[in-house]
């Protein structure tokens, strides 16, 4: 009996010792050592008790083994618990030590971007390519015939005053309009013709709102029975894609030598919806392009029978569209290659 009490006391002492030492523990390494000092099968205190089993009288052995096992299981649970809580605590510390200031700057990995005029040009190409337009890029240097005469603007015609031309020789000049592309295409193909002709054009004009070089995109459709209504229909579709679904167009009379009738095309102001604002100068409308029904003389000049075929053409200023679309206040910004400007069009 006394022996039994002795055993109980010994076990209880170990329990107390474990309880005591676990309490102050703050590192998992020390906890590991502690666990070993009790549970190691050779050197641990509980291990020792197990080893003493063989010295216990046979009739008490079962009881002894049971008590020691209970202690061992209890101790294991305590140490597991300790381990978990320490690991948790240590993870927490690690996280805290790795705290960052998320408002610090990102690591730079931004790509560059296309020029705003390219963005507009490619978008327009996508829209019109989907309608079956082929893309034709003429040359920047053009001769007088293609730029003017074939477009019903002979030498000394007052319409030449509409565009101040850069001349390279008596015959060659910098094209003033992508309309010159019309002639090249019509001379070399038969209707149905649907051509989109983007490119740089040049006029001797350099002030706050004019640049001596800018970009245009000419569109041309020639087939049987093409009407002004078809022009309006196509432009309606185009402006809705560019400026938004609710945009409408307004045609008003104008004059270009190569179209008859000729129109200026205004779009309802996409900023104020037509109520009048600073963008549309209070009119509710913004002028975006010139267009018209291809002049019979132009068709004739290209060997296309004007009694059988008709067509329409339109010319869009790409800088103007880009400026309207992105709110760019000054055309000169487009040619200055200021990275702070360019990077805004990503």
């Amino acid at each position: 009996m006394a022996e039994q009490n002795g055993l109980r006391d010994r076990l209880e002492a170990i329990r107390d010792e474990i309880r005591q030492s676990v309490r102050g523990m703050d590192s998992s390494k020390a906890a590991y050592d502690l666990r070993k000092s009790f549970l190691d099968s050779k050197k641990g205190k509980i291990g020792q008790l197990m080893k003493e089993m063989k010295n216990i009288p046979a009739e008490q052995r079962a009881e002894y083994g049971k008590s020691v096992n209970e202690l061992k299981n209890w101790a294991q649970e305590r140490f597991d618990e300790l381990d978990r809580s320490l690991k948790e605590k240590e993870m927490q510390l690690r996280y805290e030590s790795e705290k960052i200031d998320v408002t610090m700057p990102a690591v730079k990995m931004r790509p560059g971007n296309l020029h705003p005029v390219t963005l507009v040009r490619e978008e327009l190409i996508d829209i019109f390519a989907g309608m079956g337009f082929e893309i034709f890029e003429g040359s920047e240097v053009e001769n007088d015939y293609y730029n003017f005469t074939a477009l019903n603007t002979p030498q000394d015609h007052p319409a030449r005053d509409m565009q101040d031309t850069f001349y390279l020789s008596k015959e060659f000049l910098l094209r003033t309009q992508t309309s010159s592309g019309q002639i090249h295409v019509m001379e070399n193909s038969k209707p149905p013709i649907k051509i989109l002709s983007p490119g740089k054009v040049f006029r001797s004009d350099d002030d706050a709102t004019h640049s001596p070089m800018f970009s245009q995109m000419e569109g041309l459709v020639v087939d049987e029975g093409i009407t002004l209504g078809d022009l309006k229909g196509m432009l309606d579709l185009f402006v809705q894609k560019i400026f938004g679904e609710q945009t409408t167009t307004r045609l008003r009379p104008s004059y270009f030598p190569f179209t008859e009738p000729s129109v200026e095309v205004d779009v309802s102001c996409f900023s104020c919806g037509g109520a009048g604002c600073s963008l549309c100068k209070g009119t509710g409308w913004i002028e975006v392009l010139g267009a018209g029904v291809v002049n019979r003389k132009v068709l004739e000049n290209c060997g296309i029978d004007p009694d059988r075929y008709s067509g329409f053409a339109f010319g869009i200023g790409l800088e103007r569209i880009a400026m309207l679309r992105y709110g760019i206040p000054n055309i000169k910004l487009l040619f200055e290659s200021d990275i702070k400007v360019l990077k805004q069009f990503y």
């Binding site: 149905p192 649907k194 087939d223 093409i226 009407t227």
Partner: peptide
């Protein structure tokens, strides 16, 4: 035609979508 439509009003022009034109393949 131009004399008529400028006095009649361009707002009378009805948008149509190439009803009589043939299909063409386009693209870059």
């Amino acid at each position: 035609a131009e004399e008529l439509i400028r006095m009649y009003g361009y707002d009378h022009v009805k948008p149509t979508f190439l009803d009589s034109a043939r299909v063409t393949s386009g693209g870059r």
